[in-house]
Design a protein around this nucleic acid. Structure first.
Length: 432
DNA sequence: GCCGTACCCAGACTTGGCTG
DNA sequence: CAGCCAAGTCTGGGTACGGC
């Protein structure tokens, strides 16, 4: 701990400055925040984060908002590092704290620093990292907000005026000086990026490969429970669940053990089943449904095939033997620590192994686009499209905006329609 | 003036690379 | 090879704008 955490020793160093800092800091920065900062790699940026009151206050507000969810810690740390990196540059220009940075008089210096940190090229008017510039802007505003609130509470008129001035500077000048160009760079980059839709053939290859890998791992785990065989089966099953559901990788990986064990096994409600075709009813009986909280807390369903359920049951029963901690709440838990296997990692791993022509296209977002394009090819009616979008966890509007794809793609996809019909034939056997 | 839409923004979340 | 870092993407909400 002491190796990484440079702040604590400083607090006890007995210097006058450090002592004042301690009293101020400990008043408003909670233990939880320090815990959040603790695992950060020890480098210049981290030192800045730990010693700048403004950044710490931002950390505190973010922690108050998200602290209950450990999967968000990473996100908070990233925000803090972004700000600290600008501050490092500002320090070469005689601005030493974030609080100073949001003083109206320093506005132009801040703009300069942000441009520098995100690699602005004066000549071509482009950014190397446009989204960084945008994100720092958001955070600076947040900082100004925090200070403004403090000014309101302490009835500090001068400070109030100062933060207000910064905010109006920001609203009218930031767009002109930073964000407009940054957005331009971003959309330019996107425009020039070739479309990477997976080939249906590759999808099938991956599917087959996963089924095999899962089976091998399943047998191995059944024979001898070890963290290795556990990991293999967990990763394979995770990847299966993701491609089967065309689900965002993160959503599935964060599934809780509780979600799985308490899944809804009750038979379909009569009224609901009335509206379904015989085929659809068969599907509902065949698959297990687990409901999880998806992006932005909306409820999404994950469907599991009987094979997957079997694998998962085996995994759950062997958690203890394979060194998974009691406190780990995730279904796809990593042994010996409190995190979970990341879906995109296992997907990438298996995509490489399965012998696909373009393994780099087999990513969860690409697969989602794949569905979107195919549904267009199949001429789904609007209400059916709604359901597809709903299942994928999108608003229909976004679905249209983001996933309507150019003509050439549709041509290409029509060829894959044939393969999809094959897929359908496969589903037909369940019906029979 | 009303409505649809095009664009902008903030912020949560994902992805892929890298490193210790 | 797990975990961190840096950059990008997605998405809901807002507002500006132009046709009617």
């Amino acid at each position: 701990h002491t190796r990484r955490c440079h702040f604590m020793p400083e607090r006890t160093s007995g210097l006058g400055l450090a002592t004042t800092a301690e009293t101020v800091f400990s008043e408003s920065i909670s233990q939880g925040v320090w815990k959040l900062l603790d695992p950060m790699r020890q480098d210049d940026v981290t030192t800045v984060v730990r010693n700048d009151f403004g950044i710490l206050q931002l950390a505190q507000t973010l922690y108050n908002k998200h602290g209950h969810d450990t999967t968000k810690y990473e996100y908070i740390r990233q925000k803090l590092r972004e700000l600290a990196r600008v501050l490092l540059i500002l320090r070469t220009d005689s601005i030493y704290t974030i609080e100073e940075a949001v003083k109206p008089g320093n506005f132009l210096k801040v703009v300069k620093a942000v441009k520098k940190v995100s690699g602005f090229d004066e000549e071509n008017q482009t950014y190397a990292a446009p989204s960084l510039a945008l994100k720092i802007g958001h955070s600076l505003q947040k900082i100004a907000d925090i200070i403004h609130c403090r000014a309101l509470m302490t009835e500090n008129e001068d400070l109030m005026k100062s933060t207000e001035a910064f905010k109006s500077l920001y609203t009218s000048k930031w767009c002109e000086l930073v964000s407009h160009t940054a957005l331009n760079t971003l959309s330019e980059k996107k425009f020039n990026k070739p479309l990477t839709l997976p080939f249906t053939q590759d999808v099938q290859l991956l599917h087959n490969h996963l089924q095999q890998a899962a089976k091998v791992a399943f047998d191995r785990l059944k024979e001898a429970a070890s963290p290795q065989s556990y990991a293999e089966l967990a990763k394979a099953t995770l990847a299966q669940a993701i491609i089967f559901n065309r689900r965002r990788a993160g959503e599935v990986s964060k599934m809780r053990l509780k979600n799985f064990t308490e899944r809804d096994t009750s038979p379909l409600h009569d009224d609901v089943s009335l509206g379904l075709t015989k085929f659809e009813k068969k599907l509902c009986e065949h698959f297990s449904r687990v409901e999880i909280r998806g992006k932005r807390g909306r409820k999404v369903a994950v469907l599991l095939t009987p094979d997957m359920v079997e694998s998962l049951n085996l995994l759950v029963n062997n958690r203890m033997k394979c060194g998974v901690q009691d406190t780990n709440v995730f279904l796809f838990a990593r042994p010996q620590c409190s995190s979970y296997y990341r879906g995109q990692d296992s997907l990438r791993l298996h995509a490489e192994k399965c012998g696909a022509k373009k393994p780099e296209y087999l990513r969860s977002t690409q697969l989602r686009k794949h569905v979107a394009t195919l549904s267009q090819v199949l001429n789904l009616k609007d209400n059916e499209l709604d359901q597809v979008a709903d299942f994928l966890g999108h608003d229909i509007r976004v679905h249209r905006d983001h996933y309507r794809l150019p003509e050439a793609t549709i041509q290409l996809a029509k060829i894959s329609k044939l393969l999809l019909v094959m897929d359908k034939g496969c589903l037909g056997s369940i019906q029979g």
